[in-house]
């Protein structure tokens, strides 16, 4: 029995809002804006629209996105975690031939310290931190993500050019931050062979 007045009230509210918006629009139209300025604002809006349009089209139709898969992990017990236990780190290839790289970041290195990946092949990186905040960037590529403790940072990328690349920590993680880096070899697709069973790779290749 309360519905009638409530409905009326809602209608009243909507009407008010509508008339307020109309007033607002009329007042906005009444503001003195110089012809030149009007043109400039139009140009600005077109340019902004163009940029936003390119970004949105790339995101929706070409899948060009930053990392954004919200997935949690217990950073304090990675050694007990099936996925990120020592034996599972590094490069793995599943039955369908998809390449996945699991990496642990910790003061002050990325583990395993050296990996080989194929060029011109989509590679899924899954990064976790075992202590504080880290970031990882492979210069000259778009393999870049923050590694926040408590979360898995997943990013899929394709390396176009074979070569030796450094893997750098790019977020302040403590006084030894400078020393936090490792290596990755991007190998021409035809020369690359999948690791048979990913062994524990604790051997240092760093200076």
């Amino acid at each position: 029995m309360q519905t009638e007045p409530l409905k009326q009230k809602c209608e009243q509210l909507l009407q008010n809002l509508n008339s307020q918006l109309c007033d607002f629009y009329a007042q906005l139209r009444a503001i003195h804006i110089d012809q030149l300025e009007r043109k400039w604002i139009t140009i600005s809006l077109i340019v902004i629209g163009l940029f936003v349009g390119i970004i949105v089209i790339d995101a929706f139709f070409h899948g060009v996105n930053p990392p954004g898969k919200v997935e949690t992990v217990d950073s304090a017990s990675l050694h007990l975690n099936k996925e990120f236990a020592e034996d599972n780190l590094g490069v793995q290839v599943d039955a369908k031939g998809h390449v996945t790289v699991r990496m642990v970041a910790g003061r002050y290195s990325f583990f395993p310290k050296h990996i080989d990946v194929p060029a011109e092949t989509p590679v899924t990186f899954r990064w976790v931190s075992m202590d504080v905040l880290h970031g990882v960037h492979i210069p000259m590529t778009n393999m870049s993500t923050m590694i926040v403790p408590g979360y898995v940072a997943e990013i899929i990328t394709t390396f176009p050019k074979p070569g030796e690349y450094p893997v750098l920590c790019n977020e302040y993680c403590g006084l030894g931050h400078n020393h936090m880096w490792s290596n990755i070899s991007v190998i021409a697709k035809e020369n690359w062979t999948a690791p048979v069973k990913s062994p524990a790779k604790g051997v240092s290749n760093n200076e």
Binding site: I41, F51, V52, I55, N65, P66, P67, A153
Partner: peptide
């Protein structure tokens, strides 16, 4: 937070559009 794992890409895109609006 574009490069952060704790927020989904949809929210990042929404904030990206707002970022361009504030250029106006």
């Amino acid at each position: 937070l574009y490069m952060d794992p704790e927020q989904a890409k949809g929210w990042k895109l929404l904030h990206a559009i707002g970022t361009f609006v504030v250029a106006l």
